[in-house]
Amino acid sequence: MSLELFHSQVMPIRPKLYRFAYRLLNNEQDAQDITQDAMLRVWNQQGRMAELQNLEAWCMRIVRNLALDRLKSKKYRNTELLDKADTMQASHQSNPHLAAEQQDVMDRVHRIIHALPEKYRTIIQLRDIDGFSYQEIADILELTMNEVKTNLHRARKAVREQLQNIQVYGLQ
């Protein structure tokens, strides 16, 4: 692979790789490190790229594996509870009370998603936030498409039930 090919095919997906790593790790610095490591691995394994059907899915799989390795290491400490990248700024709202209420709901959703098992959390991230198709998610996670659909349904159902419990019963 030439440098031009790398810049034209791999570099445009770097922001997606970073967002995915950030969602998994909840830490900007670690997400940057993982993204950089993934880019190096892609460059070092450029001979494999000719046989790939989906370059983006392959890169996402590399990021996922590196992030999971980082999470499993004893050195890793989760320093951020909420995802700061998606926080809504109150200045965009005409009513500060409405803005605060919406921010509170988003914080709850992020906490609920963060508490999900890793597989569910990853599938929600890939489908609902990053917009990947079921087939792309199946390629990234090395699952069947039916497993992806089933796990996404279960993850969404778990989030919905917990939000309903908070709304109806005040449980957290």
Rank of each mutant, 00 (worst) to 15 (best):
A85M: 07
K74T: 13
N78T: 07
W43L: 10
S73L: 00
R48I: 02
Q53I: 03
L81N: 10
W58D: 01
W43N: 04
A57G: 15
D69Y: 00
C59S: 14
E80N: 13
A38L: 02
M88Q: 06
E51S: 12
W43E: 01
Q46K: 14
E80I: 09
M39I: 12
M39V: 10
M49T: 13
Q36A: 15
M49K: 01
D69Q: 10
N54L: 03
V63L: 09
E51F: 10
S73F: 02
Q89F: 10
L71G: 10
G47V: 04
N78P: 05
W58N: 04
L81V: 06
R64N: 08
Q53N: 14
R41I: 08
S73Q: 07
K72D: 14
W58A: 02
A67P: 04
R64T: 05
R64Y: 07
W58S: 02
N65S: 04
D86N: 11
N54Q: 05
W43M: 05
A67G: 05
Y76L: 14
Q89L: 10
G47R: 12
N44T: 14
A38Y: 01
M39K: 09
D37G: 00
Q36F: 15
Y76V: 13
N44S: 15
L55M: 09
R61M: 05
L82I: 05
Y76K: 08
M49I: 15
E56S: 03
L66S: 06
K74D: 12
T79W: 07
R48P: 03
L66K: 12
L71A: 11
L40C: 07
T87A: 07
L55H: 03
R61V: 05
T87Y: 03
A38K: 02
D69S: 05
E80L: 14
T35G: 14
K84P: 01
A85P: 00
W43Q: 02
A67R: 07
L82E: 02
C59H: 03
I62F: 07
L66M: 07
Q53D: 15
N65Y: 06
I34C: 12
M60S: 05
D86M: 09
K74G: 08
W58C: 01
L68Y: 15
L52Q: 09
W43I: 04
V42L: 14
W58T: 02
R48W: 03
D37C: 02
Q46N: 12
L66F: 06
L66C: 05
T35Q: 13
V42I: 15
G47I: 04
L71F: 09
A38E: 00
R61E: 06
K72H: 09
W58P: 01
R48E: 11
L40E: 14
D83V: 02
Q46G: 14
A57V: 12
D83I: 01
Q53L: 07
Y76H: 15
L71V: 11
D37L: 06
K74Y: 00
T79I: 07
T87M: 06
Q89V: 06
R61Y: 00
W58M: 02
A38F: 01
A67C: 08
D86S: 13
Q46W: 00
R48A: 05
I62T: 09
V63Q: 12
T79G: 03
R77F: 10
R64S: 06
L68P: 04
A85L: 12
M49S: 13
S73H: 01
L40I: 13
L68F: 15
Q45T: 09
N78G: 08
L68K: 15
D86E: 04
R70W: 07
E80F: 09
W58L: 00
L82C: 04
C59N: 09
T87F: 02
M60A: 07
I62Y: 06
